[in-house]
Every structure is written in C-alpha cells, then in structure tokens.
Design a protein around this nucleic acid. Structure first.
Length: 219
DNA sequence: GCGACAG
DNA sequence: ATCTTGTCGC
C-alpha cells in the first residue's frame, strides 16, 4: 500500500512537538464501523537502537493471517514520553508500504487521542495512511480513570481536561484492563467494540499479538 | 521544585 | 522497551 511521506524529519523535541500540533488538525473522529481486514502493528527492540517492526494483516472475521511484513531498522528518535511515535514511525511506515494488501483498520500498540497533545502513535499512523486506526496500550499514560468492573466487556472513560480521550477496557474477566483510544477515522464506541471483538481469548487483541510474535521471532 | 512519564 | 529469576497455570 502507499503511505504519504513523512514531513521534514524532526531533529529536536520542539520540532517533533510542532509536527504533532500540525498533523493533529487532520484527525477525524468518526468513520466506518465494520472492517474486512485488520492490521496489527508492533515493534521489538534489541540492544541500543536496533528494532524490528512487524505488521500482520488478519481477516477480520476468521482472524486468519492474510499478509505480514517485518522490517529491521533503528529507532529514529530518542525516547521522550509524548514523542514515542517518532522512534518507530519510519520502520512501521516501511512495513506498511511493503504490504500486498491495504488493511481496513490499523490496531496500534500504544495511544492515539489519549496523549498530551492528543496525537499519539495511532493518530499519527492513521493520518499518514488515511486509514482508520486505534491505539491499545498496556499502561495508563495521561488523564484520570476509575477501575472497570471485573467482567469482560466493562469499561470506564479516561478523562483529560474534562474531555474523554479514551477508555479502560476489560478484555478478559479479572485480567488487567487495556487502555483504548481513537487514532483516526473511528469513533470511541467502534474502537472499543473492535478491541473486544479482536481479543476473544487474551488480554491483547490478536492482531497485536501476531505482530508482537512476528517481530520477536524475526531476531 | 520534584518525580513521573505510551514503548 | 530490555535485563533475569521465580512462580503460577494449562
């Protein structure tokens, strides 16, 4: 698939923050509710700045693998909370470009709207590709929230500056919740429903698990 | 001011 | 994220 090229690559924290402030204006918070194929994205780090970026496309109904790509590269930015996306973006974009199919939804490992400038990795990948996207994180990052009930499917809002920016979602009974937020061209209801549908058996959605496994195995 | 801070 | 041992559960 084709991905719009990244704008002048930031070389400082302030430049990276400017890129986020500019691109965030393109985020759309409504979109389709159903998807034929779904891509999971994840990155595995080795040593200093070496990394493997994996994308696995699954059939949305059967969860069978349709296509997969691994790219080996280097972190493109130092780790700075809030600018985490700049580390993995070039490798993930290259992996997406090498896909033979265009997925209908990107399921990203990290945050989307639940971000200090409302523009986490999931938003960034969504805007660059033009595809619907959502973020699933394993730990809280910004905002306040309460604990959801222990039943699978229960959730609570994540609030930042009096605005809902995501949800804690219990994907399995009595298992730690995940933190879901919108990326691009998707509603929070749809993002929540998709995460639950894609995580029928484990804490994390199958597309992310598949990408995680592929990135690890590729070492 | 200090610590914490997606991966 | 990674490092590494221990522990729990299928």
């Amino acid at each position: 698939m084709h991905v719009n090229q990244l704008h002048p690559w930031p070389t400082s924290v302030s430049e990276a923050e400017s890129v986020q402030e500019r691109l965030r204006l393109h985020v759309e918070l409504t979109g389709p509710t159903d998807f034929t194929t779904v891509a999971g994205l994840d990155v595995h780090y080795h040593g200093d700045d070496a990394l493997s970026a994996a994308v696995v496309v699954l059939d949305s109904g059967t969860l069978a693998v349709v296509d997969q790509v691994v790219v080996h590269g280097k972190a493109a930015f130092p780790y700075v909370p809030g600018l985490f996306a700049f580390r993995e973006l070039p490798a993930l974009v290259e992996a997406l470009e090498r896909l033979t199919v265009t997925p209908d939804l990107l399921v990203c490992d990290g945050y989307g709207l639940a971000h200090p400038r409302r523009f986490g990795l999931a938003c960034h990948l969504g805007v660059l590709t033009g595809l619907p996207s959502l973020g699933v994180a394993k730990t809280p990052f910004v905002g306040t929230h309460t604990t959801p009930d222990r039943e699978r499917g229960s959730w609570t809002p994540i609030i930042l500056d009096d605005t809902t920016v995501g949800r804690t979602v219990r994907t399995q009974k009595a298992i730690k919740p995940v933190y879901v937020s919108q990326g691009h061209r998707i509603t929070l209801d749809t993002a929540t429903a998709q995460v639950l549908r894609l995580a029928p058996r484990f804490r994390l959605p199958d597309p992310i698990r598949a990408a995680d496994h592929l990135a690890r195995q590729s070492t």
